[in-house]
Design a protein around this nucleic acid. Sequence first.
DNA 1: CAAGAAAAATTTGTGTACAATATTGCGGCA
DNA 2: TGCCGCAATATTGTACACAAATTTTTCTTG
Lengths: 239, 239
Amino acid sequence: METRDAENWPDAAAPPATTPTDRVRERLLRAVLEQRLPPGAKLTEDEIAGLCGVSRTVVRAALQALSHDGVVVLERHRGAFVAAPSPQSAREVFEARALLEPAVARAAARHADAEALARLARHIEAEHAALEAGELGRAVHLSGRFHLVIAEMSRHQTIAALLGGLIARSALVLALYARLPDTLCERHAHGALLAALTARDADAAEAAMRRHLADLLAGLDLAPRAPSKPDLARALSTG
Amino acid sequence: METRDAENWPDAAAPPATTPTDRVRERLLRAVLEQRLPPGAKLTEDEIAGLCGVSRTVVRAALQALSHDGVVVLERHRGAFVAAPSPQSAREVFEARALLEPAVARAAARHADAEALARLARHIEAEHAALEAGELGRAVHLSGRFHLVIAEMSRHQTIAALLGGLIARSALVLALYARLPDTLCERHAHGALLAALTARDADAAEAAMRRHLADLLAGLDLAPRAPSKPDLARALSTG
DNA sequence: CAAGAAAAATTTGTGTACAATATTGCGGCA
DNA sequence: TGCCGCAATATTGTACACAAATTTTTCTTG
């Protein structure tokens, strides 16, 4: 985390980030979504404040905002941690997405314009590039943003905002429970979505989205692992 | 707003509210939902801080949390205001609910237990009582909580959290756009929902919820009124 | 030497002070 | 008289300081 990051973004989905709180929030969110901060990581206020060159006040505000999206969890008098969704939570997140996103895809197909479609195409390119470069975390992040761009295309600001949080949590879920780097699957699914949207075929877009989400959920391994703390306790008791 | 309020609640849906920030948030939320603070009202930090006996720090945190749910809007260097959803926003809120709540009702039917059903029944009683007493705002608030209780019954914590914000905004939408005090409609619809849940009839619960939400949306008058600021501008230009 | 308790250190929670900015009221000027 | 610019006021944004709580370390004791 340096003071200034001018990495190449596939598009202007995260433009200037005007307020300091938003800047810190964006940076933390990106670090989490690109898996540079693993689930469960402690987020010390002073440390972040020092790193970002702001006071704890704004860091606290950013952490609160992130906690509201379920990306970090705040434990009173203990601090902020990157969320580590339980298998139950993971299922719920994808269930919620399965309820919202097919309708979003349908609406996006209606409002698809050339510029937005170009953005989506560039996004797929960027995902592909990240995978080629072996930057798995970055690829997951970009994959999430792909869905968010579709949500923005749908012009449903309210639902898009809800999906923002759900998609962010999905990145954490993938970090914890992905069975294996489902690379080609992703790429093909997003391609199919883009094709349906380009054809303005609402039925196809909805179907593609539904299938894609089902595939994502099916690609998870939600039984075995357990959260770190109970895991330790049980491991020692049985050992 | 006094320092201590021990009004009668239909159930323990809002239990102790342990932290000061949560207490302030709850109080503000209730004031908004019961329409004691109308849409557009200015929420001055110092005023709230004095009234609640806390510092601006916790008031700010509470306002931020509420803004994330769309109940208040924060304008930089201008302050916090009770949200006044645009007709477009209003539609979106109910669209989002229409996507989530039928599934929630279905799940709630599966998990319905005697205690939860009793809570719902008491809720309907309280709604009725509020309407009889002419406390319209309180009735709207209770009506919203009825839906939230169903969401909790469904055991989908993630979706329930999303619905919390949507339902709160719905109260604002009703305050702004309700065609008329749709009293009997509400009462009947909630009764039908409770009946379906009691019978553990998932199909009936889903259908009742779908119909209820459609009725609510149909009961809105989303064309004429406009938000306060554009309203003024246009009113003066046409006059 | 291990286990428990006390104390030190770290970290979060809250209040307060000051700086930045928007709004409001006043006075000068065409 | 009406309008523009400027000072006064009020409110928010941020930093900092202290209080409360937790975690870690250390010291005592069986």
